[in-house]
């Protein structure tokens, strides 16, 4: 330690080098993340004229409007429901499929590729496919149901069902990615631990539950965190499948921001920015909670 001052003094250029490497990423972040963020904060305390130009400081008018707007409370409810309905099934089903694909059955590669394929679809493409499936007049799903003899289901026009239908589409889109991550996790499990458990007599469900699952918690935790953020930011499927309807029952926070800022000749950037701040806050709180509560139960080897 005593020699540090004399021999290992870094030259100025050398100490700047790491920052130079970071620079491209920082520039992208500054331009596309930080500056819009700062702009949103500023806009959220401004009024907006009919062209979308800020009209000056209005204090917390946009925020008090949020609190008093009953529709906005509904939006938060829809957002929470949508997040739960997409994150939980996409992880549970993804895990089930990943475990099934561990077994040595024929054509396992084919199935793995097949199940992972949704990952390669863009949200827009997948949504259009689901639009064809759900179509109230010529939908494939209703076509199949009519063969069975049951009545038609209003997948997207029934207010009680629409959110479930959009969530199901989202789960399908998310499933491929989750399956890939979990399969990779399963593939990397230490053979000796599994073998030791087998020698101790653990097998079947017991082995999965007590040995495999705890070893897989890092991947599961990762998927819960990224899946939640992803769900909170979902937009394409709602825009394409339901445009937030029926009766605003699929209007999530992100969709509401879009409606206020860009749809139907709206340009209420002030109010939309205030909603965006709420979204930011929710993402921060949820992620912090997940790290605070869930991560304690994650088993890192």
């Amino acid at each position: 330690m005593g020699t540090e001052g004399t021999t290992a003094r870094p030259r100025p250029l050398q100490s700047l080098l790491p920052y130079a490497y970071l620079l491209p990423a920082l520039v992208v972040f500054a331009v596309f993340i930080f500056s819009p963020l700062v702009k949103s904060v500023i806009l959220s305390v401004q009024g907006t004229d009919i062209l979308g130009n800020p009209t000056g400081f209005v204090g917390f008018v946009n925020y008090t409007k949020l609190v008093t707007d009953s529709d906005f409370l509904k939006v938060l409810g829809v957002t929470a429901a949508f997040t739960v309905l997409t994150v939980v099934p996409s992880i549970v089903i993804g895990l089930a499929l990943a475990l099934l694909l561990q077994t040595r059955i024929r054509l396992v590669r084919f199935f793995r590729t097949g199940f992972a394929l949704p990952f390669a679809f863009s949200v827009a493409t997948a949504s259009v496919v689901f639009q064809v499936l759900y179509n109230p007049a010529s939908g494939v799903l209703n076509g199949i149901l009519s063969l069975v003899g049951t009545g038609k289901v209003d997948w997207l026009t029934n207010p009680d069902l629409a959110l479930w239908s959009v969530s199901a589409a989202t789960v399908w889109m998310q499933l491929g990615y989750n399956l890939l991550v979990l399969s990779a996790g399963l593939g990397a499990l230490p053979e000796e631990v599994i073998e030791a458990a087998r020698l101790d007599g653990a097998s079947g469900f017991r082995l999965q539950r007590s040995i495999v699952l705890p070893l897989l918690t890092p991947q599961l935790f990762f998927l819960v965190v990224t899946g939640t953020i992803h769900s909170l930011q979902s937009f394409g499927q709602i825009k394409i499948l339901t445009v937030g309807g029926p009766e605003n029952r699929t209007t999530t926070l992100v969709y509401s921001i879009y409606e206020q800022a860009f749809a139907n000749n709206n340009s209420n950037y002030g109010y939309a920015s205030a909603q965006a701040m709420v979204l930011l806050l929710i993402v921060l709180i949820v992620t912090a909670l997940q790290f605070g509560v869930l991560e304690r139960r994650v088993f890192y080897r």
Binding site: P136, A137, S138, D154, L156, T157, V243, G245, P246
Partner: peptide, 19 residues
Amino acid sequence: AANTGRDTAAAQTAFKSQQ
């Protein structure tokens, strides 16, 4: 009457397919 929602294309399809 059929309620095909807000999508005008869906209503058009219902007519074109004689539903």
